[in-house]
């Protein structure tokens, strides 16, 4: 009986001497997608089919409303849009008889050429007029940026259609991780998890960064058993500015979910992968 008591006491002592885990705050700083997702080939085909169908079923363009008869605009419009071939009972139409309603052949979609609001200056290559002219032709930028081509992982302008997350490599360490900051233990300096994350971000990334904290509530806790740490995740978005690595940071990257899988320690990634955006 006595021996049993002794063993119990020894177990209790072992527990009481264990150190309390360190509370820390991890910053999940992401850059949201800037452009639309790349649709899959099926989606592309589906949208193309639906779009063509929509154009086919569309109402006839009321040109009499937008180009008033007797105006210069109407003359320009008529020059660009020749009237459709009318039906003639005396003529054979090998490709089918036209069905004209309001000058539109009902069998096909209606294609309209609208007079250009800009002038096509083919000979001139004046750089100033190209960039400043309000009436210039609108050409969308490429979805692939310079950073994509250079494979610059530290650039915020890579993978515009994906959510990117900030990971860092601290000096003297060899592992990639999300920025993590310990909450001060003494009673005077102690502050909220989100405050620790915000102040920590400025410490590692300089003050040229404009961010938005989604909530003061952490979205996840990771039990770091190796370092006896509880890491609370604070979700945040970078809105503008740049991340300028300070002294404590050896390297930093902006990576998407798939790239993080290869870089982060496997156990750590498995624990946090549900927080990361698939898009």
């Amino acid at each position: 009986m006595r021996s049993v008591w002794v063993t119990r006491a020894s177990i209790a002592r072992a527990y009481s001497t264990q150190v309390q885990p360190v509370i820390s705050s991890t910053l999940l700083l992401s850059r949201n997608p800037i452009i639309t997702q790349e649709p899959s080939s099926f989606e592309k085909q589906f949208y193309k089919y639906q779009n063509e169908l929509w154009r086919r079923l569309m109402w006839t363009f009321p040109s009499w409303f937008f180009f008033k008869p007797g105006t210069v605009a109407e003359q320009k419009y008529r020059k660009l849009n020749k009237p459709a071939t009318p039906d003639n009972p005396n003529i054979e139409f090998p490709r089918g008889r036209p069905e004209l309603r309001h000058n539109r052949d009902r069998r096909f979609k209606q294609t309209i050429s609208v007079p250009k609001s800009y002038e096509d200056k083919k000979g001139e290559t004046n750089a100033a007029s190209e960039t400043d002219d309000l009436a210039r032709k609108i050409v969308p930028n490429s979805r692939i940026t310079e950073a994509d081509l250079k494979k610059d992982l530290a650039s915020l302008e890579r993978k515009l259609s994906r959510t990117l997350y900030l990971i860092i490599k601290e000096k003297g360490s060899n592992t990639w991780k999300f920025p993590n900051f310990n909450v001060p233990t003494n009673a005077e300096e102690v502050s909220g998890l989100h405050v620790v994350a915000e102040e920590g971000l400025y410490k590692i990334g300089g003050e040229k960064i404009n961010y938005f904290n989604v909530s003061n509530t952490p979205c996840h806790v990771f039990n770091n058993l190796q370092e006896n740490k509880k890491e609370y995740f604070i979700k945040s978005h970078i809105l503008s500015g740049i991340f300028e690595p300070q002294e404590s940071v050896a390297e930093f990257n902006w990576l998407s979910k798939e790239e993080l899988k290869d870089v982060l320690p496997a156990e750590y990634y498995q624990d946090v992968s549900h927080l990361l955006n698939n898009v």
């Binding site: 997608p33 949208y47 639906q50 779009n51 929509w54």
Partner: peptide
């Protein structure tokens, strides 16, 4: 009348972000 004629940018932004 077909409605899904193109990518819905705003709806995608809502569901994704």
């Amino acid at each position: 009348r077909p409605y899904e004629i193109d990518q819905d940018r705003i709806a995608e932004h809502y569901t994704n972000t």
